[in-house]
Amino acid sequence: MTIDDLLKQLLAFRDARDWRQFHTLRNLIVSASIEAGELLETVQWKTEDEIDALAADPAQRKHLEHECADVLMYLMLIAEKAGFDLVEAAADKLKLNETRYPVEKAKGTSTKYSAL
């Protein structure tokens, strides 16, 4: 399945339920943030070892998959509502990050680009 196929299915799901009326840009952005918070909950209060083990446990992995999917779907709805291609936006941002974080300055460090 491509991301375009997924978007078509997502929009059909939304439209079949008459939810477009609730999908203002503000509401979608708020919802994406809430879902990102739920993703954060999957690691809250866990050690690094416990977090690394999430993927090995089928139930925890499925929960992680669902939370990631919720974030992705809201991002897709935001992009659709705002009229931009999310994949193109991500590709453009990656190009920008390549200039902000040149390998010779950024390799092996977590320093923000403005301090490199």
Results as ranks from 00 to 15, higher is better:
Ala82Leu: 06
Asp52Pro: 00
Ile34Val: 15
Asp85Pro: 07
Gly83Thr: 03
Leu39Ile: 06
Lys95Ala: 14
Arg17Ile: 02
Ala106Arg: 05
His23Tyr: 12
Tyr74Leu: 10
His63Asn: 10
Pro102Thr: 07
Lys95Asn: 11
Leu75Gln: 10
Tyr74Gly: 02
Gly83Pro: 04
Gly37Ile: 07
Tyr113Trp: 15
Met1Tyr: 14
Ile51Lys: 03
Glu38Val: 00
Ser114Asp: 06
Glu88Asp: 13
Pro58Tyr: 08
Gln44Asp: 13
Asp5Gly: 07
Thr42Leu: 12
Ala82His: 05
Ala90Leu: 09
Lys93His: 12
Ala106Tyr: 01
Phe13His: 15
Val71His: 02
Trp19Val: 09
Lys62Tyr: 05
Gln44Asn: 12
Leu54Gly: 01
Lys8Gly: 00
Lys93Val: 03
Leu25Asn: 08
Lys8His: 07
Ser110Asp: 10
Glu41Gln: 13
Leu72Thr: 10
Asp15Cys: 01
Glu65Ser: 00
Asp18His: 15
Tyr101Ser: 01
Ile78Met: 08
Glu35Ile: 06
Gly108Leu: 01
Ala115Cys: 03
Ala115Glu: 14
Gly108Val: 01
Thr109Asp: 08
Asp15Val: 00
Phe13Cys: 04
Lys46Cys: 05
Asp70His: 15
Leu25Gly: 13
Asp15His: 09
Leu7Phe: 03
Ile51Ser: 04
Ala115Trp: 00
Lys93Gly: 00
Ala59Pro: 01
Lys62Cys: 01
Ser110Val: 06
Ile29Val: 14
Glu88Met: 05
Leu39Ser: 07
Glu50Met: 04
Glu98Ile: 01
Glu88His: 11
Glu67His: 10
Glu104Thr: 08
Leu39Met: 13
Glu88Gln: 15
Trp45Ser: 14
Ala89Met: 11
Tyr113Thr: 03
Lys8Asp: 15
Gln9Val: 06
Lys112Phe: 02
Met73Asp: 02
Ala53Lys: 14
Leu94Val: 09
Thr24Asn: 07
Glu98Gly: 01
Arg20Phe: 08
Phe22Ala: 11
Ala59Val: 13
Asp49Thr: 13
Ala69Thr: 13
Lys62Phe: 02
His23Lys: 06
Tyr113Lys: 02
Ala59His: 07
Ala91Leu: 09
Leu11Ile: 11
